[in-house]
């Protein structure tokens, strides 16, 4: 099974025997991740699912070159995470929107483009396009504090996609939102994903969310953080909220729930 996966040529992110060990203040080793091996393919939507302490965010941060693994091999877009970052191959969305409150919505989306030294006209055009895609065209001149939480997170997504990365890394982006807003953003995210063909790595602790969104759910268990299951979600696309009441959907949720170990 594993060898079949390895034979695919469209690997976007390759993780092989990744391990991460922290030293705590009392000088004891804590294993945050061990033996993480998986490939994420181009255009795939993969969720990293697990309870707190399972290392899912650590894994995302390793892919983003925000952390360096203690052991193991990793490549992002065929390169080291560092090279991938320097070439701006990924966009990242955090749990909070992390918007710049002194910049308007549009200027927030333009921020990474300014850093890339794009001509001002291109910055503006691209920002307008991104805001239209996330449905915030009319709010371009607003300041972040004037927006709801869901709208702020849309701006965060627009900003991450503005640099036209191949990969979108999302760290529990919707966990602070209410259920209704979250469901709306789920559908929007899937629409944007279909339109832009990005590879998405999505960290969450919400089982339903991971099943609804993903092609594949990577179930992580804690102590030490490790992959306890990789589950293909074979539900038809495009998906709408109605799918959540089908037996197939609830079957996947039950299967994932039973696959956690050692909590």
């Amino acid at each position: 099974m594993l060898s079949m996966v390895d034979m695919r040529t469209d690997v976007e992110i390759m993780l092989k025997d990744i391990g991460m060990t922290y030293k705590t203040s009392t000088n004891t080793d804590v294993t945050a991740l061990t033996n993480v091996t998986m490939n994420i393919h181009k255009g795939e939507f993969v969720s990293l699912l697990g309870p707190s302490g399972c290392g899912k965010t650590t894994l995302l941060r390793i892919i983003a070159d925000l952390l360096t693994p203690t052991v193991g091999e990793i490549s992002v877009g065929g390169e080291s995470p560092r090279e991938a970052r320097l070439k701006r191959k990924y966009g990242i969305v955090f749990q909070g929107a992390v918007l710049y409150d002194w910049r308007t919505v549009k200027k927030n989306v333009m921020l990474p483009l300014e850093i890339m030294h794009l001509p001002k006209k291109d910055c503006e055009e691209r920002a307008d396009k991104m805001l239209e895609m996330v449905g915030l065209k009319d709010f371009a001149k607003h300041y972040p504090r004037q927006l709801s939480g869901g709208m702020q997170q849309r701006v965060g997504i627009a900003r991450a996609l503005a640099i036209q990365p191949e990969i979108l890394l999302m760290d529990e982006p919707f966990s602070a939102l209410d259920e209704f807003t979250r469901e709306k953003l789920h559908e929007d995210l899937l629409r944007i994903w279909r339109k832009t063909n990005k590879t998405i790595v999505f960290v969450t602790h919400n089982i339903q969310e991971s099943v609804f969104l993903s092609d594949r759910v990577c179930v992580l268990s804690p102590h030490p953080g490790r992959i306890s299951a990789l589950i293909d979600i074979d539900l038809p696309r495009p998906r709408t909220v109605e799918i959540k009441s089908t037996p197939e959907f609830t079957g996947y949720v039950a299967q994932i729930r039973s696959s956690f170990e050692g909590i």
């Binding site: 983003a64 070159d65 925000l66 970052r85 320097l86 701006r88 990924y90 966009g91 990242i92 955090f94 909070g96 992390v98 710049y100 002194w102 921020l111 990474p112 300014e114 850093i115 890339m116 640099i163």
Partner: peptide, 24 residues
């Protein structure tokens, strides 16, 4: 996270100050 964001954009130290730290 703002530091991490700038890091992910491969921003120079000068850009980190001008775009993030000084206005903040």
């Amino acid at each position: 996270e703002k530091h991490e964001l700038m890091y992910s954009y491969a921003a120079s130290k000068f850009q980190v100050y001008v775009k993030t730290l000084i206005p903040a």
